[in-house]
Amino acid sequence: MIVPFSHVMILSGIVFLMGVFCAVARRNLIMILLGLEIMLNAASIAFVGGSLHFHLMEGQVFALFIIAAAAAEVSVGLALFVCVYRRTGSLDPGIGE
């Protein structure tokens, strides 16, 4: 007996909100990508919890695909940031203000 399913979902929601804060408030492109990682992590917590709750393995399969998609996204995103840094000399998303 672990905890009720709602507690897993609340944990996932809190972590997701932290990721949103990191993605929208921090003034750094790398922090935005890290915020996306935190949000994907929260989603996979919800999927694995749901997999245990409904006794279906689909949730774990989805968490695996989330990990793969996150790895692909990070590699392309960081290559883009290197391009941005070469072009503008900074990683500040609000540089035009």
């Binding site: 408030a25 003034r27 890290l34 996150a70 960081l78 940031f81 500040d92």
Partner: peptide, 24 residues
């Protein structure tokens, strides 16, 4: 392992100095 080390590589490669205002 892999993703965070990739981030660490990029952070150390680009040497981003923290802006004086770190938040919008």
């Amino acid at each position: 392992g892999a993703v965070m080390v990739l981030f660490l590589f990029i952070i150390m490669m680009l040497r981003v100095e923290a802006p004086e205002i770190s938040m919008f």
